[in-house]
Design a protein around this nucleic acid. Structure first.
Lengths: 143, 143
DNA sequence: TGTTGTTAGTTACATTTCAAACTAATACCT
DNA sequence: AGGTATTAGTTTGAAATGTAACTAACAACA
């Protein structure tokens, strides 16, 4: 109950959120104005751009995003003509999502911006710190 | 443009968000049902509980929360009778917020839960890793 | 075939958040 | 004093999110 040994800034749910918010806002500058996209949308775009066509369900699983979030992001990207859907022959419940040429161009641009932004963040850390950070975040996300 | 050296899971805005989401959901179990509170509310409660009475503006600054978020969280906590407002004599725009006895009891409970939850997360890391994690998150949040 | 269950994805409604406009109190400057 | 600018905090309407119910396609099994 002695309270004084507790530092809110070091409480992981708090500290992680502060850091996540800060970087999220930082990265926003690259896609918000230019492409009118939302957080959920660049995430979906990045999955497709980096790892190739896949179904919405797969994105849900990989990104731990709820299916309604993904569904809406996919619709938005489709409306912007950044992706197209193709129902699968053998099971028409699944639709494979794939970036259009325009979507690929947007991904190429944002992917460069992402690398640059990540590098600028990383410049504040030693390679060892950066490695520890990666490992810790990965582990926490998988709990 | 070679794309293959880019791992979405190691892109900080993405990885931080995944980790933050995971811990946020994990900690929710302690306050959501039991006290009907939201993320913004426990944050405000924790600031007041840990660091004593302060004004809404101060919480905004310390927590990088937008003033409308804080305003609503304060109203909600007030309605639950977890805090009271006292306008300051010398400048009646400021109101000092302070937890009621009931609010302090809730804080005492959640603070214990927070320590326990943080300890359970930390158990997956060495003390050195945990130190690096703290430092990195703090630095990122301050950029 | 028909019934029941499961899965991928969408829709609808309620809650939460964001941005901008607003109020009220104080400060500054003439 | 009087006008303008700031500041703390609230309110309002639009956009985003979460939850649950829904549709459509398939599977399993009698």
């Amino acid at each position: 109950m002695s309270n004084n040994d507790f530092d809110l800034g070091r409480f992981l749910p708090y500290a992680l959120n502060q850091a996540a918010e800060a970087t999220s806002i930082g990265f926003q500058k690259n896609y918000r104005q230019r492409y009118g996209m939302l957080r959920t949308e660049w995430r979906v775009l990045f999955h497709l751009g980096r790892y190739g066509g896949m179904t919405a369900k797969t994105i849900c699983d990989r990104a731990s995003m709820h299916k309604t979030k993904v569904s809406r992001a996919v619709s938005a990207l489709e409306k912007k003509r950044y992706l197209v859907r193709t129902p699968q022959e053998q099971d028409r419940r699944h639709e494979t999502l794939a970036l259009t040429r325009q979507g690929q161009a947007v991904y190429a641009d944002l992917y460069q911006a992402a690398k640059a932004y990540d590098a600028s963040l990383s410049s504040h850390f030693t390679p060892e710190e950066r490695e520890v950070l990666n490992r810790c975040l990965e582990k926490i996300a998988s709990l």
